[in-house]
Amino acid sequence: MAGEIYRKPITLALMATVAILVGSIVTMAYPMLRADMHPKLETLRPFTPLQLAGRDIYQREGCVGCHTQTIRPLASEVARYGDYSKAGEFAYDHPFLWGSKRTGPDLAREGGLRPDGWHYQHYANPQQMAAKSNMPSYGWLKGRPLDPVEVAAHLNALGMVHPELKADPAAVKAALAGKDELDALVAYTQQLGHAVQRRQGGSANLDLENPLARDTQAIVAGKKLFTENCAACHGDEAQGTDGVAPSLIDDVFLGAKGDLPDGAYFAMIDGGSDAKPIAGRTGDPGGGMDAYGKTGQLKKDEIWSIIAWLRNQKGHEAAEGHDMPEAEKKP
């Protein structure tokens, strides 16, 4: 009797279909009817034309093959990348780009972490920013034009399900004027994770004092550490790089006028961009810095050594009296 179905191919096919559909309905179709599959944070902004063009390039180049965009709620992961990913952050992501392999780091909170200039340099030559990186160069995107007609069509396709994305071609053309594919990719990168605070910087103890201040060996070590970790953005002598990172030795940022306590410098190197408001400095609004301490790139002593070297730089000498030229002469 039960053996009958093994004589009837159509009956067998129908029964197999039913077996297949049960799990599909419970785990795939039914959840779509639930609100928790369609969450949207109020802080989530729709893509601008330039950002969507950048996302299209991110898709085209298969970036998702090496970079995830979802931070798991694990302590080590939050420490490395920032607050874990929330379901409501991805309402405009058709499809999701969470990925399945982290050959490179997660990018879910990459937006605003570093300045635009860093990304331009990094996309052009990843090994300049991290010598042993295996990321290929995307410098060839520079100068490749964006097609406003195509981008408008893409916005309007998504506009069928998200009316706020609908755009008229003239406005798209204006938004993309003078921009190339690399500009678009950077714009997309810089909005990643914008709907949620990174919350990585943590607290700052402004009363901390540099235990290595005026320590000659520390100053020498600090110079070396600065060259390895900071100079790519802030320049060899901490003089800054236009459009990338500010000078750390001029009057404005670290200068004689209203200098910050050691604890504030420590907080900024330790906690990156997120610590800037805590330390009372907003810095460049478009800029950003990685949390070098919190992410394990620099140890405490190493951060203090860098601060000791910075303090020793010429910009401070007059006001601070920290000048120790003999330390600079050592190899």
Partner: peptide, 30 residues
């Protein structure tokens, strides 16, 4: 069944389309 459902998408050009599903839902279907 699998191929048809997961490839439901919004065409945006001759060789460009966006998954009909978004975010977590898109992840679940995929």
């Amino acid at each position: 069944v699998l191929y048809v459902v997961n490839n439901l998408s919004i065409p945006a050009g001759w060789m460009k389309s966006y998954h009909l599903f978004a975010g977590v839902n898109s992840a679940n279907v995929e």
